[in-house]
Simulated scan of single mutants.
Amino acid sequence: MAMTDLLSAEDIKKAVGAFSAAESFNYKKFFEMVGLKKKSPEDVKKVFHILDKDQSGFIEEEELKFVLKGFTPEGRDLSDKETKALLAAGDKDGDGKIGADATLASESC
């Protein structure tokens, strides 16, 4: 399954472009711009599984660094600071990874 099976290619392009500058990533605005806020919990989980490159059931810090590339190959890598901020927002139990049940993409975008 491709990200564009769930989200608009145009919305993805605009969202990735909006955060192309280093240290500009805001996960709440990004997830809103790509349309995740309007998606069902099932669709959000499908997006999660696309981003979970090693299919471990978790998105670890190393995978988060490449989250924009998970939406489109033209996306940039997140900085260490941006990656850590995104992990802190989604890691509800403090285990250093985000589980499929995390509501990072759908909560208060």
Rank of each mutant, 00 (worst) to 15 (best):
M1N: 08
M1C: 11
A2R: 14
A2V: 02
A2M: 13
A2C: 07
T4A: 01
D5R: 11
D5V: 05
L6N: 04
L7R: 05
L7P: 03
L7W: 03
S8G: 10
A9Y: 09
A9T: 04
D11P: 06
D11F: 08
D11Y: 05
I12K: 09
K14P: 02
K14W: 02
K14F: 08
A15R: 11
V16L: 12
V16K: 02
V16N: 08
G17R: 13
G17T: 11
A18S: 14
F19Y: 14
F19D: 08
F19A: 09
S20V: 12
A21G: 09
A22I: 10
A22G: 10
E23K: 12
E23Y: 11
S24C: 10
F25V: 04
F25D: 07
N26F: 01
N26W: 11
N26P: 10
Y27C: 09
K28A: 14
K29M: 13
F30H: 04
F31Q: 05
E32S: 14
M33L: 13
M33S: 13
M33F: 13
V34G: 03
V34F: 00
V34D: 03
V34R: 05
G35C: 02
G35Q: 04
L36F: 04
K37Q: 10
K37H: 10
K37S: 12
K38I: 01
K39Q: 14
K39D: 07
K39G: 01
K39A: 15
S40F: 05
S40N: 07
P41F: 00
P41W: 03
P41M: 01
E42W: 03
D43Y: 00
V44I: 15
K45C: 11
K46W: 00
K46N: 07
V47W: 08
V47A: 06
V47P: 01
F48H: 08
F48Y: 12
F48W: 09
H49G: 07
I50R: 02
L51E: 02
K53H: 09
D54F: 04
D54W: 09
Q55T: 08
Q55L: 05
Q55I: 02
S56D: 14
S56R: 01
G57R: 10
G57H: 05
F58S: 07
I59G: 05
E60D: 14
L64Q: 05
V67H: 02
V67S: 01
V67W: 00
L68Y: 08
L68E: 00
K69G: 06
F71I: 09
F71S: 02
P73W: 11
P73Y: 10
E74R: 07
R76N: 02
D77R: 03
D77A: 12
S79E: 01
D80Q: 09
D80I: 06
K81P: 00
K81S: 12
E82D: 04
T83H: 10
K84H: 11
A85L: 11
A85I: 08
A88D: 15
A89T: 07
A89N: 06
G90F: 02
G90Q: 11
G90R: 08
D91R: 00
K92L: 14
G94C: 09
D95I: 01
G96H: 10
G96R: 06
I98G: 01
I98F: 01
I98E: 00
I98W: 03
G99L: 06
A100D: 13
A100W: 07
D101S: 14
A102H: 13
S106I: 13
S106V: 13
E107A: 07
C109M: 06
